[in-house]
Design a binder for these strands. Structure first.
Lengths: 247, 247
DNA sequence: AACCATTCAGGTACCATGTACGCAAATGGA
DNA sequence: TCCATTTGCGTACATGGTACCTGAATGGTT
């Protein structure tokens, strides 16, 4: 091969059904990726080391390098595998609001199933086939609204930003607790809790205090909170679509 | 000390001017943090290892642990130091739109000066004093608009999400190029470029293609692009403030 | 059937990292 | 002068990615 790994993993597809001499591969990229995802789901990405993945498959760490050039590329594959679980209709229904709501809930579900997903997704610029598929669906929901492509990508970006940060908020503390080894209850009570309480009691940041103490949405379930924020974003988008809100 | 590091770094302030026996500290938390920031600015966070920071200070790696409990805490300190550079007026001016514009530009400037900032900030839930200061200012810009605290935090979140993801977009490729060791030109041409071109030529994602090929904003400078997106977010917020846009 | 170029499996090894531990040096009060 | 206390930091260990190399498996060719 001429390309010495100095190219995107998506340019180096796995070759199935080779004909010719040589030992037959005993594993698959997908099998390796799936194993990595399982470990990361259960114990966090940092547990999905090459040795650990290989061990789970009953082989040695170096064997994985026959299928994946570098560990970072495995991250791209994991992201794409998680995105492949997002089920969407064949095409937009014509009602962008309900389509985007469906999409947002699917992404949230995937983000909760795979608590590492959003962190990886936002930490590296990757464009796997399934991310492209989802992105294309999102762009397509605005067909017929008269928006040009720049406004369309802008709105999709707004939605995406909201979904990502909402998911991050929802799992942020839990993940941090797991990473430090404390159980979530202890972490909230012993680690972050006392500090927040101290800040609140100082009274130096009155509006922050109100956002902690006087929040109405704080009593909602995570899903309700997500839906509420999502509706606000969709309201914002609706307000900016000229064909809907003449100004 | 009773607390065995199982508490936030902000709860363990550095003690200056101790009286009593014992050798005097030769370094400072701030000095160490500043060194770490310099290294990270120039060569990326992954270069700011304990050994490297210590080496830069002319000492041994383990000396740092007299000042910082864990490496992760050093990240929190770095974030806060970067946020401390954000200069804001003493209080909101009463014009939320211009205040938030000022704030967004300051954050963008800090994010470009410290390309690791946004990645760290969004990868861990941290609440350093300077982050609180900036957040409080943002919340305060809406005083007088009649918004309740939940709507206020929602809007500040929207702005924050935009600023973060815009900065990430702006430096994403550059950082990735640096991390892989290629210079930016080569990376865009040899690594990501060919793949995007291949995707475009396949024609499987027509709207994605238009977003790549037919973009008007693609010809703007990064700063103009940032401003344009920012104005759209502020438009969206304005459209949702009841006292401004009766519905 | 024998041979061989080709491909995979995976052990060993190297280097870098965070950090626990322990001891020597420095310090100021008694 | 002595000593409890605190800092400086070398040593050591566990864990990580991954380069390199040897041996085993495989299917076409002779």
């Amino acid at each position: 091969m001429a390309d010495e790994g100095a190219t995107s993993i998506w340019m180096q597809p796995e070759e199935h059904e080779r004909s010719g001499p040589g030992r037959r591969p005993g594993y698959t990229r997908e099998q390796i990726t799936r194993t990595a995802v399982q470990i990361a789901d259960a114990e966090g990405v940092e547990a999905a080391t090459m040795r650990r993945i290989a061990g789970e498959l009953g082989t040695g760490a170096m064997s994985l390098y026959r299928y994946v050039p570098r560990r970072d590329d495995l991250f791209d594959l994991m992201i794409d595998l998680a995105m492949s679980e997002i089920e969407l209709p064949d095409g937009p229904s014509g009602d962008w609001r309900s389509d985007l709501t469906l999409l947002a809930r699917q992404i949230r579900a995937a983000g909760l199933r795979h608590p590492w997903l959003i962190a990886l997704l936002t930490s590296r610029p990757t464009l796997g086939p399934n991310l492209l598929r989802v992105h294309e669906f999102a762009l397509g929901t605005f067909t017929g609204t008269g928006l040009d492509i720049d406004d369309t990508t802008g709105f999709v970006g707004m939605l995406n930003d909201y979904v990502n940060s909402a998911i991050r908020r929802e799992i942020g503390w839990l993940e941090e607790a797991r990473r430090t080894g404390l159980d979530p209850e202890r972490w909230k009570r012993d680690y972050m809790g006392p500090y927040v309480r101290q800040v609140v009691e100082t009274g130096a940041f009155p509006l922050f205090n109100r956002s902690v103490l006087d929040s109405r949405t704080g009593h909602l379930t995570p899903e309700e909170r997500f839906r509420h924020g999502l509706d606000r974003i969709l309201d914002a988008i609706a307000a900016l679509i000229p064909s809907l809100c003449p100004r």
